[in-house]
């Protein structure tokens, strides 16, 4: 029940885009067509689901103060938390690289559809952001971390697909010239954010 609540919250209320603005760059750059947007969303969700439990384990067994006790008593007061950022970003970059190779080997069609955006997932703030929030919120087990990753990823997928669908329609509407392109996308995202605020207070 706790996990279901976390899942729903991370999709609708703590949405990566509308509440924290994470992953905005690729969100704005790739949302011109629904199909690519959906593909990127699925890839981001997948990376989140895989990387969160791994980073949780690293944080829990290596980084937090006293985590190294399993190596022996003399390591009990080691505090490696300052290494967090470097460890997390290396894990994410390596995971994305492995994922890229696996997708290329097993589903070449998806690989071609995603193109350059696949390696760029490594620098998508939504992934590192979710890992840092996971560290900050101090989840008790890897399962909760996975649920949080899945929820954040699906929230991101939902946001980018909606924006892409709206932007496809925008090509036929009369937008003031100075706002065309990036300006109107900002306003639409803002309005979608206001719409998503109506989910505030949902509790299961």
């Amino acid at each position: 029940m706790e996990n279901l609540n976390l899942f729903i919250r991370s999709i609708f209320i703590d949405n990566m885009i509308f509440a924290y603005f994470l992953g905005m760059c690729s969100f704005l750059a790739v949302s011109k067509n629904v199909k690519t947007a959906f593909g990127l969303g699925v890839a981001v969700t997948f990376v989140l689901i895989v990387s969160l439990p791994i980073c949780w384990a690293i944080n829990h067994f290596i980084l937090v103060p006293g985590a190294l006790t399993w190596l022996g008593e003399e390591y009990a007061d080691a505090d490696l938390s300052f290494l967090g950022l470097i460890m997390f970003i290396s894990v994410i970059a390596a995971l994305v690289q492995i994922l890229e190779m696996a997708i290329e080997k097993f589903t070449p069609a998806l690989y071609n559809a995603l193109g350059i955006f696949l390696p760029l997932i490594a620098v998508n703030c939504a992934i590192l952001g979710a890992v840092l929030f996971m560290q900050q919120r101090d989840f008790d087990n890897a399962w909760t971390a996975t649920v949080y990753g899945a929820g954040s990823g699906i929230g991101w997928l939902l946001a980018i697909t909606c924006l892409a669908a709206i932007r496809q329609r925008l090509t036929v509407s009369a937008v003031p010239a100075p706002l065309r392109g990036i300006g109107i996308s900002f306003i639409i995202t803002g309005l979608m954010g206001i719409a998503f605020m109506s989910f505030l207070g949902i509790k299961i």
Binding site: P178, L179, G183, F186, I187
Partner: peptide, 22 residues
């Protein structure tokens, strides 16, 4: 103070900037 207005504020800056540029 809420997140959505940040986006709309930036959009206004883009509007003024593009207006000046053109």
């Amino acid at each position: 103070i809420l997140p959505p207005m940040a986006l709309i504020t930036v959009a206004c800056i883009i509007w003024v900037h593009n207006r000046k540029a053109s």
